[in-house]
């Protein structure tokens, strides 16, 4: 496998976490413009843990994702009652605050003779864990996809539980869901924390693969791309957002002919797609149809 291909696949995997985190909220009926904040919090948190404190990777990632989940839950407490655009803009405001605060965060310590740590808008260099421990690009890619598989599997299983049903119901309409006894506020805070953790896993992986992060990376463009991927791929299943990421990064970014024109092509294609399929390629109806067909062919086989 060429380095280039590994790079593209790793990118797809990491951004997929961001798309999945936006998807979890979309299913619950909330549009977030701010998932990049949790991506950033975990990238910084896990980077600080491994590069500055010398923690092992798994613990650093756990710590980063937990921080992101906690932050998302804390933001959800005051914002859970906001709807639609109000929620979207509140999450955007929070994410921008995080980005601007990271620009002010300067904290470096001496690690084996070099100064390491975040340097405000200059960024945070030398998050070298995987190089220091001889983890190859392929191994790291497998780690990314292993974790991604766990998350997608977990989300798919969750959709079948009572909790998953409650989240979809809230997404359809909160008031009847509440009337049926769903604790709407608790569910929304749970969904937010889950989305924060998922974005956090992506952020921690990202920091360690790239080894250098800066606040400007985590601007609104990143977040809205994550949101758009869910909508392009479809809101019917957790596979939808992955499809969206693959289409954009895997297809358009990799086709060299589009270099310099990628956003023009991407923008045009997506705008047209959304006219034809406003809830994405794999929308609820399509997913339902595919599942039914699979079940039927299963019966025929037996």
């Amino acid at each position: 496998m060429s380095d280039y291909l590994i790079g593209v696949l790793s990118n797809i995997g990491m951004i997929a976490f961001l798309a999945l985190s936006a998807y979890v909220l979309l299913v619950t009926g909330s549009i977030s413009f701010g998932q990049q904040a949790y991506f950033a919090i975990s990238a910084y948190g896990s980077g600080i843990a491994t590069a500055m404190w010398g923690w092992p990777l798994w613990l650093g990632m756990l710590w980063g994702a937990a921080l992101a989940g906690l932050a998302a839950a804390l933001v959800a407490v005051p914002t859970a009652r906001l709807h639609g655009l109000y929620f979207a803009v509140a999450t955007l405001a929070f994410a921008e605050m995080v980005r601007l605060l990271l620009q002010m965060l300067t904290w470096q310590i001496d690690v084996d003779g070099t100064l390491i740590g975040p340097m405000g808008s200059e960024g945070f260099r030398e998050i070298r864990y995987i190089y220091a421990h001889d983890i190859s690009a392929v191994q790291f890619m497998l780690l990314i996809y292993g974790l991604l598989g766990l998350v997608v599997g977990g989300l798919t299983l969750m959709e079948r539980t009572r909790l998953g049903l409650a989240l979809r119901m809230i997404g359809e309409d909160e008031i009847p869901a509440e009337a049926l006894g769903v604790n709407v506020a608790a569910c929304k805070i749970f969904a937010a924390a889950l989305s924060g953790i998922i974005a956090g896993i992506g952020g921690a992986l990202y920091a360690h693969l790239i080894t250098y992060i800066e606040p400007a990376l985590f601007n609104v463009m990143l977040g809205v791309h994550g949101l758009a991927y869910g909508l392009i791929g479809g809101l019917g299943t957790a596979v939808g957002p992955l499809l969206g990421v693959v289409l954009d990064i895997g297809f358009l970014e990799s086709v060299r002919a589009f270099a310099g024109y990628r956003m023009i092509v991407f923008g045009g294609l997506v705008a047209l797609l959304l006219i034809v399929r406003p809830r994405g390629l794999l929308d609820e109806v399509t997913v339902h149809r595919i599942v039914r067909r699979l079940i039927r062919s299963d019966h025929v086989a037996h």
Binding site: I31, V224, L227, F266, G268, P278
Partner: peptide, 13 residues
């Protein structure tokens, strides 16, 4: 939401 995302991709364009 579809319209919002659509207006975002056109922004990129």
């Amino acid at each position: 939401i579809t319209a919002v995302v659509s207006s975002f991709v056109i922004w990129m364009q």
